[in-house]
């Protein structure tokens, strides 16, 4: 629409009651109506503040089967003290934070030890803790024991250019799941038989699930079009 056809002049002063009306108040970029900070965009796309998730180790006893699992691992694995960074029990789930270099060894014992028997690796995926952890990329392994009907989560943390030994020799099912984690987060799994992208095109640049990778705002491949990022699509002023 050109300016000539626009019936409302942009510079016109507001009509009607204008004394103290919101239209006359000086715009304050930091604080809006009702104490809203930033853009006032309640859709959540703009000015989103992420709180730091603080991950603290839990004290013993952990309760439930968690003590049995950690004790069995400690007994079966001589390097337990060096490999386990911390043990977290939260919401009825056990998380073992592992030193990245040791993950394959720990997985091997988790699978093979008589008292542990985590036969199934349910899921491998990543989380990007940008700005909250210096080793920002976390890889989580969800193991399930069909013998004892237990679940446990192993978690490793590496820097953005870090690498983690692959667990595919212990759990072949981790093959595609590690490829997906590489594809989305850029975690390099050393020793993986075929570490290529699995969901994104082979020549894609960047790692889409990282927190500093925008949703939208990247040129659309193959079409030449561009979609603006969500915080620029709508304006509430």
């Amino acid at each position: 629409m050109s300016d000539e056809t626009n019936p409302v002049p942009v510079d016109a002063s507001p009509t009607g009651a204008n004394l103290g009306s919101p239209a006359e108040l000086p715009p304050n970029p930091d604080r809006g109506m009702f104490g809203v900070k930033g853009t006032g965009d309640v859709s959540g796309f703009g000015g989103l503040v992420r709180r730091r998730p603080d991950i603290e180790g839990s004290p013993k006893p952990y309760g439930g089967y968690f003590d049995e699992v950690t004790d069995a691992l400690e007994e079966a694995y001589p390097g337990f003290a060096d490999a386990i960074e911390k043990v977290v029990v939260d919401r009825g789930e056990l998380t073992l934070h592992i030193v990245p270099e040791k993950i394959a060894e720990v997985a091997q014992i988790m699978r093979d030890d008589e008292a542990l028997r985590f036969e199934l690796c349910s899921s491998v995926s990543g989380v990007d803790y940008l700005h909250t952890d210096s080793r920002r990329l976390h890889v989580t392994y969800h193991l399930a024991s069909m013998t004892y009907r237990r679940r446990v989560r192993l978690e490793v943390a590496v820097a953005a250019d870090g690498s983690v030994p692959t667990v595919t020799s212990v759990y072949p099912t981790a093959d595609w799941q590690e490829r997906e984690t590489y594809d989305m987060f850029g975690v390099v799994f050393t020793g993986h038989p075929n570490l290529t992208r699995v969901l994104m095109p082979d020549d894609w640049e960047g790692f889409p699930q990282r927190k500093d990778y925008p949703l939208g705002g990247v040129p659309v491949e193959y079409k030449g079009a561009e979609i603006p990022p969500p915080d620029q699509r709508r304006v509430y002023q």
Partner: peptide, 8 residues
């Protein structure tokens, strides 16, 4: 509240 869970 912050935290993580796995549900199957």
């Amino acid at each position: 509240p912050p935290g993580q869970v796995y549900v199957a």
